[in-house]
Amino acid sequence: MPKQDEALFQFLLRMGDNTLVLGHRVSEWCGHSPVLEEDIALANTALDLIGQTQFWLGLAGEVEGKERSADDLAFLRDVWDFRSILLVELPNGDFGQTLMRQFLFDAWQSIMLGRLMSSSEKRIADIAEKASKEVAYHVERSAGTVVGLGDGTEESHQRMQAALEYLWPYVGEMFMSDEIDAEMVKRGIAPDPTSLREEYDALVGRVLREATLTIPDDPFAHKGGKTGKQHSEHLGHILTQMQWLQRAYPGANW
């Protein structure tokens, strides 16, 4: 693959692996949520994310040109080939932690998709246009829930503050740039991740203030997922669940 296409392929894996891994994580709640309405909401969010994955990984397979489908990429790669950020791999924790993670991701995704709608690569702009409509709903709900629980009872506030403290060190990875991002910027395909930070901080800051939560004052950020250099231990466990059917019965279909 020419170097330029390799960069585009990697970029698409990053987009698709984020939605795939988070979609799978969120789907783990199906049948376990505190109330029925939330169960349905989580399942719907997971469904949207997995649907978006089909577009991103489908296009990644097309760009790669080795006739790998979205399903092949999702179910037949191992940990070291995944390009998802560490944030989406983290365990669900309690309901509050799941919704805090969702909000921290939704806020980034809504800004990112907004920028990608003017991508020079039409197929990416098309996916962004489609997905952004769904993500507008996701971020509205997750932000609302973060405010409801953060500014809720003493117990819920405490749990949300603990979730924020646990998750915050994983936020920075979304804004780290490397040579793949530079190539995307050069070709007008995607924005420089660092350029999203200001808008993100404004949005997240506003919601967390309303939720009476305090953002940790420590710039440390875990990294390694987006580049694939070092995933957390959790990704392997996710894949054993997500991929077992294709591993046990290769090519199984319905």
């Binding site: 309405e37 939330e38 349905i40 909401a41 719907n44 969010t45 469904l47 949207d48 769904e134 709903y137 509205e140 709900r141 609302g144």
Partner: peptide, 13 residues
């Protein structure tokens, strides 16, 4: 509004 999501992706409750 009861929930932003409903029985299918296209609906709210």
């Amino acid at each position: 509004k009861v929930s932003q999501f409903g029985s299918t992706p296209c609906k709210a409750l």
